[in-house]
Computed example of a mutant assay.
Amino acid sequence: MTEAADIAFTGAQEGLRAIAAQTQWINQQVGAGKLTLDPEAAEKAAKRCEDESNGLRTLFDEARAIARVEGLGNYPDGQQLAKRFEDKANDPQAGAFALIRQMQAELKKQADAFRAAARDYRATDEQNADDLRRGMQ
């Protein structure tokens, strides 16, 4: 890869790691009972994650274009260049397709984490209501 491509893909990988760390933090906080979210706010956050994930479908389609570069001729230089584009799209660890799919999966996990926080909120709210009702009897 060229230096510019390396930087771009490295940046994407770092962004993916940051999203994964954020998702992990949310799940840890929910699991420890330290994070509950109003169900409406949690649903908005989850929907935002899903919208971003859906937006990545367009990016995935655009990445397909770099995997099928045509018109560079039958000369070795043209074929090598086409192969480099194909490799950038298809590399299983750091290619465009892999990064996009990983980001989509991470955004789904994050949406699930927000919804889990909303479930905890509801459970806490119901428990508090039950406790209050028992105290009034």
Rank of each mutant, 00 (worst) to 15 (best):
M1T: 11
M1P: 10
T2G: 08
T2R: 15
T2N: 09
A4V: 15
A5E: 07
A5H: 06
D6I: 06
F9Q: 00
T10W: 06
G11M: 11
G11C: 00
A12M: 05
A12R: 00
Q13P: 03
E14I: 11
G15P: 14
L16I: 10
L16D: 12
I19N: 06
A20L: 14
A21M: 15
Q22I: 04
Q24T: 15
I26Y: 06
I26T: 13
I26K: 09
N27H: 10
Q28G: 11
Q29W: 00
V30D: 02
K34L: 13
L35F: 03
L35T: 01
L37C: 02
P39A: 07
E40T: 13
E40Y: 08
A41C: 05
A41P: 04
A42V: 09
A42D: 05
A42C: 02
E43L: 09
K44F: 10
C49M: 14
E50F: 04
D51F: 05
E52T: 03
S53G: 09
S53A: 13
S53F: 06
N54P: 01
G55A: 04
L56G: 01
R57W: 04
T58A: 13
F60C: 05
F60Y: 12
D61M: 14
D61V: 02
E62N: 15
E62D: 13
E62T: 10
A63C: 11
R64Y: 10
R64W: 12
R64V: 09
A65Q: 08
I66T: 13
V69A: 03
E70T: 09
E70V: 14
E70I: 06
G71Q: 01
G73I: 00
G73W: 01
P76S: 08
P76M: 04
D77F: 00
D77E: 10
Q79A: 03
Q80D: 15
L81H: 08
L81Q: 05
A82V: 02
R84K: 15
F85G: 14
D87G: 00
D87P: 02
A89L: 10
P92D: 03
A94D: 12
F97T: 09
R101H: 11
Q102A: 12
M103T: 13
A105S: 14
A105V: 12
L107G: 04
L107S: 11
L107Y: 05
K109I: 02
K109R: 14
Q110D: 05
A111Y: 10
D112S: 14
F114R: 00
F114K: 03
F114W: 13
A116P: 08
A116K: 10
A117L: 05
A117E: 02
A118R: 06
R119S: 06
D120M: 14
T124I: 05
T124P: 11
D125G: 13
D125M: 12
E126L: 13
N128K: 15
N128E: 12
N128M: 10
A129Y: 08
D130V: 09
D131Y: 03
D131G: 05
D131F: 08
R133T: 01
R134K: 07
R134G: 02
R134F: 04
M136Y: 01
M136W: 06
M136S: 01
